[in-house]
């Protein structure tokens, strides 16, 4: 082929190749953590899904069983965080953002079911973990602005909230099946409050926008459940019987 001496300095391309190869190696390392996280989150989700078939009186066993998977998740996120903090956050965050969202969602569900700061006594549903609380549990900073380091973003937290609403609309139906007519009312108020929050956000045309557009249908599903049980006089009287 042609002579190599004039047009191109081959060192330029060798250097570029080295740069992109190095990035690829970083990406592989981060992907490995993300995959571990995904697996552990699935375990957590597997445990928590028993909430759909467990009356609230027995829920503490589910919450107890969730503790080990949560510890595993926290540990992996710690490793991911240490590794990812060495590189520019937004250059690589697509390797882990979905997994972080899923982990956050499962923590939110666990927190809603009453897992966070659980007393020995009665399990209490209905708590929303703030982004700061999620950060504390996972032992990572949230919504960082002043430095380039691993953290949980607002968008990731909002994605997790959407998933939470979706999950709760399912839980509302299953509560009725379990004979619990009180929880759908709690869920109804909770998801309405969240929807009201989402409505003040100016979301652009991205996946968060698309998912949050679907929230109203989920809220409606819960409303339908409440409608069904109130129509049949199954709604417990306020402050009434046990």
């Amino acid at each position: 082929m042609a002579q190599q001496s004039g047009m191109v300095d081959p060192a330029v391309f060798q250097d570029l190749q080295a740069r992109v190869d190095e990035d690829a190696a970083v990406r592989d390392e981060l992907k490995a953590f993300a995959q571990t996280l995904e697996k552990q989150t699935r375990n957590l989700s597997f445990v928590l899904s028993r909430a759909h078939s467990t009356p609230i009186a027995n829920l503490s066993t589910v919450l107890e069983a969730a503790e080990t998977p949560i510890q595993n998740v926290v540990e992996t996120i710690g490793k991911l965080s240490a590794s990812a903090s060495k590189v520019p956050y937004y250059k690589f965050n697509n390797t882990w953002t979905r997994q972080t969202q899923d982990a956050t969602f499962n923590l939110l569900l666990w927190g809603w079911l009453g897992g966070y700061q659980r007393d020995a006594g009665q399990v209490k549903n209905g708590r929303l973990l703030t982004i700061e609380e999620v950060g504390q549990i996972l032992n990572i900073p949230v919504n960082l602005k002043d430095r380039d380091s691993f953290h949980l973003t607002i968008e990731e937290y909002l994605h997790a909230l959407v998933s939470l609403v979706e999950e709760l609309s399912r839980l509302a139906r299953n509560s009725v099946t379990l004979g619990d007519y009180e929880r759908p009312l709690l869920i109804n108020q909770f998801v309405k409050d969240l929807l009201a929050g989402f409505q003040i956000l100016n979301l652009k045309n991205d996946s968060l926008r698309r998912r949050s557009d679907g929230l109203k249908y989920k809220v409606k599903e819960v409303e339908d459940v409440v409608y069904d049980i109130s129509l049949r006089n199954l709604v417990p009287a306020k402050g009434g019987e046990n």
């Binding site: 929303l128 982004i131 607002i154 968008e155 009201a196 929050g197 003040i200 956000l201 100016n202 979301l203």
Partner: peptide, 16 residues
């Protein structure tokens, strides 16, 4: 009525 409003207002600011 939503107790989550202050939180979402903060988010809105950031997202904007």
């Amino acid at each position: 009525s939503s107790p989550f409003m202050p939180m979402f207002e903060e988010f809105r600011k950031e997202l904007d």
